[in-house]
Simulated assay, not measured.
Amino acid sequence: MKSLPNLLWLRSFEAASRLGSFTAAGAELGLTQAAVSNHISALETRLGHVLFERTTRKVELTESGRAYLQPVRKALQDLAVSTEGLFGSKSSGTVTIRAPISEAVLIIAPALVEFQKVQPDLDIRLLSAIWADTVLETGVDIEIRLGAGNWPGCRAEPFGSEFVVPICHPDIAKTLKSPNDLSGLSLVHILGFDDHWPHFFEALKQEGPDNTKGVTVDTSLAAVEWAAAKGGVALILERIALRLASSGRLAIPFGTRIPSGQNHYLIHRDKAPSQNPAAQTVENWLRGLFSGE
């Protein structure tokens, strides 16, 4: 990295190349014409090549300048995209949502299509995480968690009760007349929800099937894909199962549902700054999305 030129010099070089003027480049960057000229001269001295042909009315790139412009512009663009992707925009119209990965993919992302038709001026960033304690302390405007609602350092606003139901491929569902038919089928277990299957059979007042075959995954998203591939039967949140069943991709074989034991919460961090109007708009939309309104 020691061979890299000063970033300010590179910004002045890119702006002057694009605008064809040191004066215009200075206006865009908030610098004087003399400052831009000094940056370019310093860069040329550092590289040992003349980058611009100066005339009284404009500047033009030399052959060396044209060759250098493309990698410099790409590097600056990559840096801008990476910064925006990791830390977000500071504009009032940008709202960053953080949610569990399965909810982000299976609940929020599909609903965002219609929401953005109503709110086209809002720039939404949707971040996901597998575990609730994987905390992003900065850059998140709205955070949704699934759990018991007892996280330190914040107030948890409940979105309502959650239930889980079995799902499977429609072809498998046709062979299931009652929960007794689950015997011999592979059951998927989700880390963090390991007690769901025992509770499911307990609610039915029957013993679970005596089989240990199956898979264990760490997200409901993986469980959905496993069930869709005819791997067997999974227990997932009812709100996700209903959407997938309505599309015909998966089916809910029985009418039995049990409380999840974990609900969705909107997280309000202690000492967090007040939200801007854009974030409040998105937050209200999420309340309606998770309440079914």
Results as ranks from 00 to 15, higher is better:
4 L>W: 11
6 N>P: 06
17 S>H: 09
32 T>A: 13
44 E>M: 02
49 H>T: 13
52 F>I: 15
56 T>I: 12
56 T>E: 15
58 K>M: 15
60 E>M: 13
66 R>W: 09
67 A>Q: 14
68 Y>H: 05
70 Q>M: 00
75 A>L: 07
84 E>I: 10
84 E>Q: 12
84 E>S: 10
86 L>Q: 13
92 S>Y: 02
93 G>W: 03
95 V>H: 02
99 A>Q: 01
107 I>D: 07
107 I>G: 01
108 I>V: 14
110 P>A: 08
112 L>T: 14
112 L>K: 10
114 E>F: 04
114 E>L: 12
115 F>Q: 09
115 F>W: 10
118 V>S: 08
120 P>M: 07
121 D>E: 09
127 L>R: 10
135 V>H: 02
136 L>N: 08
136 L>K: 06
138 T>H: 07
139 G>N: 05
140 V>W: 03
152 P>Q: 12
167 I>W: 03
167 I>V: 14
175 T>W: 02
184 G>Q: 13
189 H>V: 07
202 E>T: 13
202 E>S: 13
205 K>I: 06
214 G>L: 10
214 G>S: 08
216 T>V: 12
221 L>D: 11
229 A>G: 10
229 A>H: 06
234 A>V: 12
236 I>G: 04
238 E>K: 11
239 R>G: 00
239 R>E: 00
241 A>P: 03
242 L>V: 09
255 G>K: 03
263 N>Y: 02
265 Y>E: 00
266 L>D: 01
270 D>M: 07
270 D>A: 05
272 A>N: 03
273 P>Q: 05
274 S>C: 05
276 N>T: 00
286 L>A: 05
291 S>H: 08
